[in-house]
C-alpha cells in the first residue's frame, strides 16, 4: 500500500510517499513559514516525480502536532481533504513521536523538544524498545525550566532533539548535562515509515476522526479562565 505523508507542524513543510519498499520520494523545505503555499504543489511534485497517481494512494498520514498551530492545521486540513476526496483512511502521528523515532538506536532517554514560542517548548520522553521507541513520559508544554526540571528528576543519560532543544540549547545545558543533536524537524519520511507499520495492523481512522494535539488552550480561553476564577 502506498502512503502519502504530510508534515507541517514546525517551520518545515515536508511530503513523502512510501510503502512496503520504504520511502520512495521526499520533498522538504525548512526555511520560511509559507506552509499553505508550498504544501499542495509539494504533493503534486512528489507524486509526479515518483510516478504515483493520487488514486493509487491507500492512506494519508499526517503529523498531528504538537507544533505551530497554523502550520499543523494547514497539513491537517489538506490531509483530511485529500483523504475525504480519495475515500481513503488516515493515520495521525505525533510530531514528538516523529522526532524520537530516528533516534531509536540509542539506549539513552530520547527527549524531543519542539519550539512552542512564548518561551515554551512541547516535549516528551522516549526509550528504546525492539523495532522503535516507546513514550515514557506524556507530552507536556511549558517553559524550558520545566523541561530541565523533568530531565533532572529523571537523571538519566539523555539525548535532546528538535528545534526547541536547539533554540534553548544553552538554557538546557546550563541546567542538565546531556547531548543536543539529531533531527531538528520531524521528517515526513519517518511519518511514512511509522504510518506503514500501523497500516499493516490496520490502525487507521476516518478523516473526521483525526484529532490535532494542541496541548495549549487558545489565549482567549486562558484569559477567560483567569477572569472567571477571580472572586
Amino acid at each position: 500500500m502506498l502512503i502519502l505523508g504530510i508534515e507541517s507542524a514546525t517551520q518545515q513543510v515536508g511530503v513523502s510517499i512510501g510503502g512496503h519498499e520504504g520511502v520512495i520520494a521526499t520533498f522538504e523545505v525548512a526555511r520560511g513559514r509559507r506552509h499553505a503555499e508550498i504544501l499542495t504543489p509539494a504533493i503534486e511534485f512528489v507524486c509526479r516525480q515518483a510516478d504515483v497517481e493520487l488514486g493509487e494512494l491507500g492512506c494519508v498520514a499526517v503529523d498531528v502536532g504538537p507544533g505551530l498551530f497554523t502550520g499543523m492545521r494547514v497539513g491537517l486540513a489538506a490531509g483530511k481533504a485529500l483523504a475525504q476526496a480519495l475515500k481513503i483512511p488516515m493515520i495521525g502521528i505525533s510530531s514528538l513521536d516523529l522526532l524520537a523515532f530516528p533516534c531509536r538506536h540509542t539506549d539513552r532517554v530520547v527527549v524531543p523538544a519542539i519550539d512552542a514560542r512564548k518561551g515554551e517548548v512541547f516535549w516528551a520522553m522516549y526509550r528504546q524498545v525492539p523495532g522503535g521507541v516507546q513514550q515514557v513520559s506524556a507530552p507536556a508544554v511549558g517553559p524550558v525550566d520545566e523541561l530541565v526540571a523533568d530531565l533532572l528528576a529523571r537523571s538519566q543519560d539523555a539525548l535532546c532533539v528538535g528545534d526547541g532543544a536547539e533554540r534553548y540549547r544553552e538554557e538546557i545545558l546550563e541546567g542538565f548535562h546531556c547531548e543536543i543533536s539529531g533531527p531538528v524537524h520531524p521528517s515526513p519520511g519517518a511519518l511514512v515509515q511509522l504510518a506503514h507499520a500501523r497500516a499493516l495492523r490496520e490502525e487507521w481512522v476516518r478523516p473526521g476522526e483525526i484529532e490535532p494535539i494542541y496541548l495549549r488552550a487558545p489565549d482567549a480561553q486562558i484569559n477567560w479562565a483567569i477572569r472567571e476564577s477571580r472572586p
Binding site: L39, T40, T70, V74, A77, A78, A81, L82, Q84
Partner: peptide, 15 residues
C-alpha cells in the same frame, strides 16, 4: 488557511 489548504487539496485530488 484552513479553507484554502483543504480546497486546494480537494482540487488536486479531483483533478
Amino acid at each position: 488557511l484552513v479553507g484554502v489548504s483543504a480546497a486546494k487539496a480537494l482540487s488536486l485530488a479531483w483533478d
